[in-house]
Each structure stands twice: as C-alpha cells, then as structure tokens.
Measured scan of single mutants.
Amino acid sequence: VLKALERTRQLDIPDEKTMPVLMKLLEEAGGNWSYIKLDNYTALVDAIYSVED
C-alpha cells in the first residue's frame, strides 16, 4: 500500500482519492497485487483518473 501511495503522491494525487480506488481494484483483483503493480501502478493511476472524469 505504501508504494502505491508513494507513486500517486508523485503525481499530486491525495491519499483520500487513492485509497478508495485502490481498495476497489484490490477487491476486483481478488487481492492480487500483480495487476495493480504493473508498469509502476499504471492501472491504479488510470483508475483514479477515470473516476475523476
């Protein structure tokens, strides 16, 4: 979780936006981090930006 938060902080995305999206992605992935961690957490960042749209 810390590495995911560090990555999104680099992009000026607050933890308050990151955590709900991260928890949803983890739930959808059955707790499997490998998809979320791919390409420096690209799936997480993309999911956060899609929620903002």
Score class of each variant (00 low, 15 high):
residue 45 V to P: 01
residue 10 Q to I: 08
residue 3 K to C: 14
residue 1 V to G: 04
residue 19 M to E: 02
residue 51 V to W: 14
residue 3 K to I: 07
residue 8 T to Q: 02
residue 26 L to Q: 02
residue 39 D to K: 09
residue 45 V to K: 03
residue 51 V to S: 15
residue 38 L to E: 13
residue 21 V to P: 01
residue 41 Y to W: 12
residue 39 D to E: 09
residue 33 W to Y: 03
residue 34 S to D: 15
residue 12 D to E: 12
residue 10 Q to G: 10
residue 11 L to D: 03
residue 49 Y to E: 07
residue 45 V to A: 02
residue 41 Y to S: 00
residue 12 D to C: 15
residue 50 S to D: 10
residue 16 E to D: 11
residue 26 L to V: 05
residue 46 D to C: 14
residue 24 K to C: 07
residue 32 N to S: 11
residue 17 K to M: 11
residue 5 L to S: 02
residue 9 R to I: 02
residue 52 E to D: 13
residue 31 G to T: 05
residue 42 T to W: 12
residue 14 P to D: 07
residue 33 W to A: 01
residue 22 L to E: 00
residue 15 D to W: 05
residue 34 S to V: 10
residue 25 L to M: 14
residue 13 I to R: 03
residue 10 Q to C: 09
residue 32 N to E: 10
residue 49 Y to A: 10
residue 13 I to S: 03
residue 7 R to V: 12
residue 18 T to Q: 02
residue 21 V to N: 02
residue 12 D to L: 13
residue 11 L to T: 02
residue 47 A to R: 09
residue 1 V to I: 15
residue 52 E to P: 11
residue 28 E to V: 09
residue 50 S to C: 09
residue 45 V to D: 01
residue 33 W to P: 00
residue 32 N to L: 07
residue 6 E to S: 07
residue 4 A to M: 03
residue 27 E to S: 11
residue 20 P to Q: 11
residue 40 N to K: 06
residue 16 E to V: 09
residue 30 G to D: 10
residue 20 P to L: 12
residue 28 E to S: 10
residue 37 K to A: 15
residue 18 T to W: 04
residue 41 Y to K: 00
residue 34 S to F: 14
residue 22 L to S: 00
residue 42 T to Y: 11
residue 37 K to E: 15
residue 22 L to I: 06
residue 1 V to K: 05
residue 7 R to E: 04
residue 37 K to C: 14
residue 38 L to F: 13
residue 13 I to V: 06
residue 28 E to W: 09
residue 2 L to T: 13
residue 26 L to R: 00
residue 18 T to R: 02
residue 41 Y to D: 01
residue 22 L to H: 01
residue 8 T to Y: 05
residue 36 I to S: 00
residue 44 L to K: 01
residue 25 L to P: 00
residue 20 P to D: 08
residue 18 T to C: 06
residue 25 L to H: 00
residue 32 N to H: 07
residue 26 L to K: 00
residue 27 E to R: 10
residue 36 I to T: 01
residue 39 D to N: 15
residue 47 A to V: 05
residue 5 L to Y: 00
residue 28 E to Q: 12
residue 26 L to W: 05
residue 20 P to V: 12
residue 20 P to H: 10
residue 42 T to A: 15
residue 29 A to S: 15
residue 53 D to C: 15
residue 48 I to W: 02
residue 4 A to S: 03
residue 31 G to E: 06
residue 16 E to A: 11
residue 36 I to W: 03
residue 19 M to P: 01
residue 2 L to C: 15
residue 40 N to G: 07
residue 11 L to S: 04
residue 39 D to T: 05
residue 17 K to E: 07
residue 7 R to K: 06
residue 9 R to N: 04
residue 44 L to D: 02
residue 50 S to R: 15
residue 23 M to K: 10
residue 48 I to V: 08
residue 47 A to K: 08
residue 20 P to Y: 12
residue 31 G to I: 05
residue 26 L to E: 01
residue 20 P to E: 11
residue 18 T to P: 01
residue 3 K to P: 05
residue 41 Y to G: 01
residue 13 I to D: 01
residue 3 K to Q: 15
residue 1 V to P: 04
residue 30 G to C: 11
residue 11 L to K: 04
residue 40 N to S: 07
residue 38 L to K: 15
residue 28 E to P: 01
residue 52 E to F: 13
residue 30 G to I: 06
residue 28 E to D: 11
residue 26 L to Y: 04
residue 36 I to A: 02
residue 32 N to G: 06
residue 40 N to P: 01
residue 13 I to G: 03
residue 43 A to G: 07
residue 2 L to N: 12
residue 14 P to H: 05
residue 15 D to H: 04
residue 12 D to H: 14
residue 37 K to Q: 15
residue 4 A to R: 02
residue 5 L to K: 02
residue 33 W to N: 00
residue 48 I to P: 00
residue 42 T to L: 13
residue 53 D to N: 14
residue 2 L to V: 11
residue 14 P to V: 05
residue 20 P to T: 10
residue 46 D to V: 12
residue 7 R to G: 01
residue 14 P to I: 05
residue 31 G to P: 03
residue 17 K to G: 02
residue 18 T to F: 04
residue 47 A to N: 04
residue 51 V to H: 11
residue 41 Y to T: 01
residue 40 N to T: 03
residue 5 L to W: 00
residue 28 E to K: 11
residue 17 K to L: 12
residue 35 Y to W: 14
residue 5 L to N: 02
residue 35 Y to F: 11
residue 48 I to Q: 00
residue 22 L to W: 01
residue 34 S to E: 15
residue 34 S to L: 11
residue 22 L to Q: 00
residue 2 L to E: 15
residue 29 A to H: 15
residue 29 A to V: 13
residue 25 L to C: 04
residue 10 Q to F: 10
residue 30 G to K: 12
residue 12 D to R: 14
residue 52 E to Y: 14
residue 15 D to L: 05
residue 28 E to C: 10
residue 16 E to K: 08
residue 16 E to N: 10
residue 42 T to C: 08
residue 22 L to C: 01
